[in-house]
Write a protein that binds this DNA or RNA. Structure first.
Length: 523
RNA sequence: GGACCGGUAGCUCAAUGGUAGAGCAGCUGACUCUUAAUCAGCGGGUUGCAGGUUCGAGUCCUGCCCGGUCCA
């Protein structure tokens, strides 16, 4: 075992041995504490020095040493734990010869426990007057610099534990993420939903259009796919009579990595029988306003340069969004009716692209031949998506890009589907679920016929069979938890809200070298 | 995949093509109310990797690795 910086690592190991020689266990098994550091700071913030002296408070506190000021026969340190820190004062007279020797052998980063009583220093800082000091765990490697913390983003992701120790803001993000998930559970539990867990390994990947990760089960000798979405299993449960179900769990998509994409990401999916997509739109407006208020204290949330207002959602059809954000320099603006004839979306795209080339605007680049609905979707992504900053419900999707949604009664080229966009990001996707097994089979077969990496290879007969037993009219939705957390924590990269985002592994050479004889002659 | 930016001590950062530095952390010593403790002294580098240009490269060129941002 040998890590950089070698000199400090060895120095700390030497101290560890000295601590053992004093008779202390450098890695004891437990410490009984009465308060966390932030609990004390909060509970006694108003207690004056005379009050604390008159009414002695005995406490036992554990934490990591994050600052250390030694002065001859006394010293101060700050203990950090549970997201707060408190100062301790250690005096040789009080802790004794051995206790003070231990204090001198401590380093920044060590975990310690103290027993003592509260007092205030001359500068009025609430502190613990230590009567007994225990080492709880020796840190053999030094912490990042105390003043600037850890700023190297690569190190923050690779060694998240250091980021969490050094950067309180990072700790806060993940604490907030946990509260968001708690709030979501409360919201759905209160509405009579039950939480379920469905398979992460699927024999046929389904429920989304994405390239899956493949793995293999040896005993059954079968390939399995890490799920790209839980959708088809959750809908089997609505067939089974779970009329309101939700699941919060990971999805896996074998695709690119960006500030908005991680190959594994967390999704909330929920299904509600006897409701349609309009009901879910209303539910979302309530949910987002409530979440924003409970998490940030207000329905208006700062995100980068924007003030997002979750109290009001704009509702736009996909076609309306394209028209609304159609470039002003390119006239005439297409009319709504121009999207309905089979050849027209492609024609609109051609006209847009011809202009985009000369204007240097984003290009609606199609891979292969697109159907009219695919053209409409592509036009939306190219022209409008990144303009949807304020919370927006985008609805009326083309059927061609919505294989699991129910058609609109008055226009079978469209489906009862919506997505929620905030800060130019897709946050949620919901629809009235297609529950006609014959129509679902036709759509699956069309997908398979189209081929490609992102299409299913086999018909999910089992799912069609489930629909044949009758699925009630149902509305369902998925909400991306990572992106939602980004919005509510003002984070601009998904990696800042995922504890351990996927990174390319470091070159192994640096740490696998056996320690050789030192050729430099130093030592 | 492409463009641009970055990688220097454990951490945070300097260094016209001309002797690789500072602060923090570390080590030795002093100090019984400090708090970015202070004071005196000391050690610490394959400048991401491999080539090239040059009398001389952290700096310029080429390739590669890792990361970031934007685009596809």
């Amino acid at each position: 075992m040998q890590f950089e910086p070698r000199d400090q690592f060895e120095q700390r190991q030497k101290k560890l041995e000295q601590i053992q020689q004093l008779g202390f266990d450098p890695f004891p098994r437990e410490f009984r504490w009465t308060h966390t550091p932030p609990e004390l700071v909060h509970a006694y913030s108003q207690s004056s020095a005379p009050e604390l002296e008159a009414n002695r408070r005995d406490v036992r506190v554990a934490g990591r040493i994050v600052s250390l000021r030694l002065m001859g026969k006394a010293g101060f340190a700050h203990l950090q734990g549970s997201g707060g820190r408190i100062q301790i004062y250690v005096k040789k007279d009080v802790v004794g010869e051995k206790g003070f020797e231990l204090f001198h052998l401590l380093d920044l980063g060590d975990s310690v426990g103290v027993r003592g009583h509260l007092f205030r220093t001359r500068t009025n800082e609430l502190s613990i007057f230590v009567e007994e000091l225990s080492l709880l765990s020796k840190a053999l490697l030094p912490l990042p610099e105390k003043w600037h913390g850890l700023t190297d983003v690569e190190l923050r992701y690779r060694q998240r534990y250091l980021d969490l120790i050094a950067n309180d803001a990072s700790r806060q993000v993940f604490a907030t993420r946990a509260r968001i998930i708690q709030e979501l559970r409360k919201f759905f539990d209160a509405r009579g939903y039950i939480e379920v867990e469905t398979p992460m390994m699927h024999p046929i990947p389904g429920g989304a259009t994405a390239r899956p990760f493949v793995t293999h089960h040896n005993t059954l000798d079968m390939d399995l796919y890490l799920r790209i979405a839980p959708e088809l299993y959750l809908k089997r449960l609505t067939v089974g009579g779970f009329d309101r179900v939700y699941e919060i769990n990971r999805n896996f998509r074998n695709e690119g990595i960006s500030t908005q994409h991680n190959p594994e990401f967390t999704m909330l999916e929920f299904y509600e029988a006897y409701s349609n997509y309009r009901d879910l739109m209303d539910l979302n407006e309530n949910l987002f306003a409530l979440l924003a208020t409970n998490i940030t204290g207000s329905t208006t949330v700062k995100y980068g340069e924007y003030e997002l207002d979750f109290a009001k959602f704009e509702r736009l059809s996909m076609r309306e969004a394209i028209i609304k954000y159609w470039p002003a320099q390119l006239q005439p603006v297409p009319a709504l009716s121009e999207f309905s004839l089979p050849d027209d979306p492609a024609a609109i795209a051609r006209r847009y692209n011809a202009w985009a080339k000369t204007a240097g605007a984003p290009y609606a680049a199609a891979k292969g031949n697109l159907t009219p609905g695919e053209w409409t979707g592509l036009l939306f992504e190219t022209i409008a998506e990144d303009k949807l900053i304020q919370p927006t419900i985008l609805f009326d999707f083309p059927i061609d890009i919505s294989p699991l949604s129910k058609q609109k009664a008055d226009d079978p080229s469209l489906v009862e589907r919506f997505e929620i966009y905030v800060a130019g990001m897709e946050i949620a996707n919901g629809f009235s679920e297609l529950n006609d097994p014959a129509e679902q089979e036709r759509r699956f077969l069309a997908q398979i016929a189209e081929g490609g990496d992102e299409s299913p290879k086999r018909l999910d007969v089992d799912y069609i069979q489930a629909l044949c037993y009758g699925m009630p009219p149902t509305a369902g939705e998925g909400i991306g938890i990572d992106r939602l957390t980004m919005l509510l924590t003002d984070s601009k990269s998904i990696r800042d809200v995922i504890l351990f985002p996927l990174l390319r592994p470091e070159l192994p050479e640096s740490q696998s070298d056996p320690p050789a004889a030192d050729p430099s002659g130093k030592a």
